[in-house]
Write a protein that binds this DNA or RNA. Structure first.
Length: 274
DNA sequence: CGCCAGGGACGAA
DNA sequence: TTCGTCCATGGC
């Protein structure tokens, strides 16, 4: 067990893990435990540091995962184009966009469609408990997110058992697309946002919104503005947009910083509880 | 464009 | 307690 520590400047754990980009971290009075890329970690804030205690404390891995090298003060300046964005960036102070595993993000956001965050978390947890590798840490059992190879022979009915309903067939086809190489992470990483979108959208169960989330949270493509019901709501209320145009309006306003702006707006509007 | 699809969370009654 | 509505939507 080793530790890595990074500055807590522009980095708030609660906002980062609770803003809807990930479904696998659990909080217990300010301390977050979970598994990323098969590595277990406990992450907490002490004084002016974020301390990561891990069974595989690869410093470079955690820094990349937590996006610690990016200048978020600069991002806040870029996206603060009006008083609402000022409020949103203050409210979501310290949000960081995690660089998550591609396959995990893809499967998780296919599950997410037309569902709620507690339900998504429950299904993803069951998937990991059923097919992931066991990782024991501090007297508790944790599970990795299963690889596509591990899910090779999982049937549609098997997927149904984790409570994903009609999405089960999408998950099965997703595993097939990854194993056959029809959908390839490296190809997507090297492609433009537009080309990557084109490829991902050929997958069953991947539409505009799921596609954008996967690119934003796992492929480091930030010039896109995922538009779900909350984003459409806030774009209609405060930016004079229609629901249909919310994505285009957001991307025009925020350009290369669209993904960050969207995340602040989503977190702010969703927690407002109208 | 319109309809429909698990099933849990959540609030109203 | 029960009922209706909604949910980080997409396929057909």
């Amino acid at each position: 067990m080793k530790t890595v520590s990074v500055s807590n400047k522009d980095f708030n754990l609660k906002h980062t893990f609770d803003c809807g980009q990930c479904f696998r971290w659990e909080e217990e009075n300010g301390t977050f435990t979970g598994v990323a890329d098969g590595k277990w970690a406990r992450i907490e804030e002490k004084d002016d540091k974020i301390i990561i205690t891990s069974n595989d404390a690869d410093e470079n891995f955690w820094k990349k995962y937590l996006d610690t090298e990016r200048d978020y003060a600069e991002i806040k300046r870029k996206v603060t184009i009006n008083p609402l964005m000022e409020k949103a960036t203050q409210y979501g102070y310290g949000i960081r966009l995690l660089r998550q595993d591609f396959f995990e993000t893809l499967m998780s956001f296919i599950i997410s469609q037309r569902s709620s965050i507690p339900k998504i978390k429950s299904s993803v947890k069951k998937l990991c408990e059923k097919y992931g590798d066991e990782i024991e840490a501090e007297g508790k059992m944790y599970y990795s997110f299963p690889t596509a190879q591990r899910l090779k022979d999982v049937s549609e009915d098997d997927f149904r058992e984790i409570g994903v309903g009609y999405r089960a067939i999408y998950l099965k086809k997703c595993v097939e697309d990854i194993l056959s190489g029809r959908i390839d992470e490296k190809t997507l990483l090297n492609a433009s946002t537009e080309k990557a979108r084109e490829m991902l959208m050929t997958m069953h169960g991947v539409g505009d919104k799921v596609c954008d989330c996967v690119m934003l949270f796992s492929l480091a493509k930030y010039d896109l503005f995922p538009s779900d019901v909350w984003i459409k709501r806030v774009m209609c209320e405060s930016f004079g947009s229609s629901e249909k145009d919310a994505k285009d309006v957001g991307e025009k306003l925020f350009g290369d910083y669209s993904g960050f702006a969207q995340q602040y707006l989503f977190y702010y509007r969703r927690n407002l509880k109208d």
